[in-house]
Amino acid sequence: MTPVAECLAAFVFGTTTGLLVQRSRYCNVAALRDAMLFKTYRNTKAMLVAMMIMTLGFTAFISIGAGKPMQFDVGLNTFIGLFLFGIGMVLAGACTVSTWVKAGEGNLGAFWALLCTFAGMFLFSLLWSFTYWPPAPGTMTGRPNLAGLQFGFANAATLQLKTGIPAIVFGLVQALALYGIYRAILKRERAGAKATAPARDDGACEAWATADSVAAAVPGAAALAEPSA
């Protein structure tokens, strides 16, 4: 496939995804933050369903040697990086998907979040140029490198290679585990619906909190929050 064809395929995928995310108000921040802060799971359930389908699809194709899995070493930097990212996305009120989608809807706060993300990446590029950590993709070996705090590379394909068991079997186990979490959420929602009045579950994922949502979670904070746009 030529680079231009790859870019075209990516653009078609991105356009469809942007449209679907915009119409559904899906947001990754809401999937995690709302589950922790408001105990609502509208976006969490969607994320779990997508992960189940992708796990089955990816591992099925990996079993027959098809597909293009990501290939790079992981290490302590993976945990720390996503830890920082998790804090950042809650503060910004948007993740990598919702910044682009909200920017497309005319949200200037999301545009600013994007610019700050670019600035953060550039700052890190300066820092990396002194430390050379984590190792550049070209120097990765796929094996553990404890001196560099790297654990190497492992995925469904390497599991299949080492055990002789098709990757889809491992995929089924993971999909079942995700389904277990999904069922637990449904059970919790039903129990909550019986015990109390309907909880706030509008899936809001603004770049800043709405008055209702903040007031529900943080008593006395409504004065600081913005009305829904």
Binding site: N28, F72, V74, N77, T78, F79, I80, G81, L82, F83, L84, F85, G86, I87, G88, M89, V90, L91, A92, G93, A94, C95, T96, V97, T99, W112, A113, L114, L115, C116, T117, F118, A119, G120, M121, F122, L123, F124, S125, W128, P134, P137
Partner: peptide, 18 residues
Amino acid sequence: IGGLLMGIGIRLAFVCNV
């Protein structure tokens, strides 16, 4: 602050939330 942390986090980890 959130945007800066997201940018630094993505590059440190080589991955984003997606």
